[in-house]
């Protein structure tokens, strides 16, 4: 793995984190003193992906804008790693007419056809549409692949199992990603799942299954490289499960009283910075520069979002039908 690639992975993770730190700040800023989920410039549920950036960065490094990604209710890291325009993303989260979905969707419903990106708030329901995108790519003679993401909690949903079987049966160019962050809201993986590894489930359906045990961006990058190359070469679907970490609450406002692992969590971004520094790829100055660069891109996006108009109530009925 070359230095430029490693640096690229780091930058992607930092950009995603920088974006989410800004969301975190603005989300809570105007919900005081009485915290009201529906109040403020960013209302509604907010699921942030801090800690899970290695998964998105490692996978999306192998994708182009012609490849599809179907993400979850926790979509920002994949959206950003897959190259979504930060301005359109921020404007959607701020509910503005200039957002990806003109304020109709919100943070769980991001649709960006220019990079074949979508996500859903219904658990595991991003897997089936990825099959269709992969099917279409195959029939259109394209070399593209579809990447479908879920959490480990979602892997107990029927749609997950049906999708694995169909993808293997029809040898579709799909790569399934499972982000195992140990938790599905308050329910731990061990309390919800009869076996330890979804790679085993994948194998039983005839897919190539891999489990990455350490939230390492380079481990994800390696596994994704193989899986995506195989998919492009028509060698069929794979599943990659990554042991990752949810650094923050399930959604913002989650007190996490159920959680007993909070002081064992390792933030993968400073950990990777340390690794790259000791390998002589990063310096403290570079780390600072990368953070500043990310922050200024995020600031621009937020500026754009906040100065954009709200949708007009008179147009609420637009886009129900084409």
């Amino acid at each position: 793995m070359d230095n430029l690639t490693r640096l690229g992975l780091y930058k992607t993770m930092v950009l995603s984190r920088s974006f989410e730190e800004a969301i975190l700040r603005d989300y809570h800023a105007d919900k005081k003193p009485a915290w009201d989920i529906g109040a403020g410039l960013i209302p509604g549920e907010m699921h942030l992906s801090a800690g899970q950036e290695p998964v998105a960065a490692g996978v999306c490094a192998h994708l182009t804008a012609d490849d599809a990604v179907t993400a979850t209710h926790r979509p920002h890291h994949f959206a950003i790693a897959h190259g979504m325009d930060l301005k359109l993303l921020a404007a959607e989260i701020f509910g503005r007419e200039t957002g990806l979905g003109k304020g109709r969707g919100g943070h769980m419903h991001l649709f960006d056809p220019s990079i074949h990106f979508s996500c859903s708030g219904i658990i595991a329901e991003g897997y089936p549409p990825a099959l269709g995108q992969a099917f279409a790519f195959q029939h259109q003679g394209k070399n593209s692949v579809a990447v479908a993401v879920t959490g480990e909690g979602a892997a107990n949903q029927g749609a997950f199992h049906e999708s694995l079987n169909l993808a293997a049966l029809w040898k579709l160019p799909v790569v399934f990603i499972v982000e195992d962050n140990d938790w599905a809201i308050s329910v731990s993986r061990d309390a919800s799942t009869s076996i330890r590894s979804n790679a085993v489930r994948a194998t039983s359906y005839g897919l190539r299954g891999t489990r990455i045990q350490d939230n390492s961006v380079e481990g994800v990058w390696d596994a994704a490289k193989t899986a995506i190359e195989r998919a492009r070469a028509g060698e069929g679907p794979s599943l990659i499960e990554v042991q990752t970490v949810r650094l923050w609450g399930h959604f913002e406002g989650d007190a996490q009283a159920y959680r007993n692992d909070l002081d064992t969590l390792i933030d993968p971004i400073p950990a990777y910075a340390n690794q790259l520094e000791s390998d002589g790829i990063l310096t403290p100055e570079l780390v600072k520069g990368i953070a500043e660069d990310a922050k200024s891109r995020v600031d621009d996006a937020f500026e754009y979002a906040k100065s954009s108009p709200f949708p007009s109530a008179a147009e609420v009925g637009n886009y129900v039908f084409a």
Partner: peptide
């Protein structure tokens, strides 16, 4: 609700 999905943005949601 006038037969539209519930919109995210507050201005739209409160219109329905």
């Amino acid at each position: 609700i006038p037969d539209v999905p519930i919109p995210y943005s507050r201005t739209l949601e409160y219109a329905v």
